[in-house]
């Protein structure tokens, strides 16, 4: 299996098998031992971090992962100060940076940008989020967190809550969950329901999600809730955003009433998770963010075909 990753790209969950996802997660578990002390298997390797959109967790955990592996990173956290502001195309930026580095992580507002990057470049490309389409490394760490916290993914009831229409994290996660034997509940306001095409795809794969706007009911049934932010920046019309901006809130009272399901969130959060849940044992969203490091260490090591010692 190891060799199937060497030199390849990580663009979408769509073309990944359960075996491949589990293989990366197993590797991530082994990377935990280097998470704080580091290793030197990537010494001499450079990663390009090209972030055309803001990011805290994805960018910093990719950088941390590469540095813990003994490699280094170069790149930009926004297009400010780059030639993108002079009108340079994404393609030219990519072709230039790929001359300097061994692997690239790209976040870009256009859907399909990471796929284009993978076609243009010889170095491996990792998709750090392309518009509203995909965020596959977030999905890897989400699955890894579920497995770590609950032992296994099969047999669990999972509620995805919040913005299921524009959220790339729930799109990617829902697709990945088709590989597992889970019950899926989709909890969202009417306007933010999951897009029809993805629903059809999930059904074709044998996952028959239940759609509801009853948060308490879906929390009570769930082993875990995956909450998402209502993303202002993805709404084509700001007045539509205002209608649903405060559509739901998960607080301590709700979690206690519903049997304290595990609570995940890709972060950042705004109003959807009340800080009064932060000290609850099952609120694992900061641990989840932390899991981004071993998971991305594993992915980088596989794509660069590094031997971890």
């Amino acid at each position: 299996m190891e060799s199937t990753f060497a030199g390849s790209d990580f663009i979408t969950i769509r073309d990944k098998s359960r075996e491949q996802l589990e293989f990366i997660m197993d590797k991530a578990r082994r990377m935990e031992r280097y998470r704080n002390i580091g290793t030197d298997c990537a010494r001499g390797h450079l990663m390009g971090t090209l972030f055309f959109e803001p990011s805290t967790r994805t960018r910093i955990s990719f950088q941390a992962a590469m540095k813990r592996l003994g490699g280094d990173t170069v790149g930009f956290p926004s297009t400010e100060g780059t030639s993108v502001q002079k009108g340079e195309t994404l393609a030219d930026t990519l072709r230039t940076v790929s001359q300097y580095v061994d692997i690239i992580v790209l976040r870009h507002p256009s859907e399909g940008s990471a796929k284009l990057a993978s076609e243009l470049l010889d170095v491996p490309v990792m998709n750090g989020g392309d518009g509203g389409a995909n965020h596959p490394t977030q999905t890897l760490l989400d699955l890894y967190t579920i497995r770590k916290e609950l032992g296994e993914i099969d047999g669990k009831t999972i509620t995805l809550a919040g913005d299921l229409r524009y959220s790339r994290t729930t799109r990617s996660l829902a697709r990945a969950l088709t590989h597992f034997d889970v019950e899926l509940i989709l909890n969202s306001p009417e306007q933010l329901r999951m897009k029809e095409d993805l629903l059809m795809e999930l059904e074709e794969e044998g996952l028959n999600p239940v759609e509801t706007d009853d948060l308490e009911g879906s929390a009570a049934k769930a082993d875990l809730i995956y909450a998402t932010r209502i993303q202002k920046e993805r709404f084509p019309d700001i007045s539509e955003y205002k209608k649903v901006a405060h559509a739901y809130e998960i607080d301590k009272e709700l979690l206690e009433k519903t049997g304290e399901p595990l609570l995940l969130h890709p972060l950042p959060r705004v109003n959807e998770i009340n800080p009064d849940v932060d000290d609850m044992d099952n609120s694992v969203f900061f641990d989840q963010a932390g899991n981004g490091v071993p998971v991305r260490m594993a992915l980088i090591a596989l794509l660069l075909d590094l031997t971890d010692r």
Binding site: A91, H108, S110, E111, S113, G131
Partner: peptide
């Protein structure tokens, strides 16, 4: 990405159904 000015990429679709016709963009899904 296929609609962004000056990027060197042609729109590309997979035919998912022939009757009636349905296609999926190979870049943005």
């Amino acid at each position: 990405i296929t609609n962004q000015e000056r990027e060197p990429v042609e729109p590309q679709f997979e035919v998912t159904s022939k009757n009636p016709i349905a296609v999926r963009c190979l870049y943005c899904d």
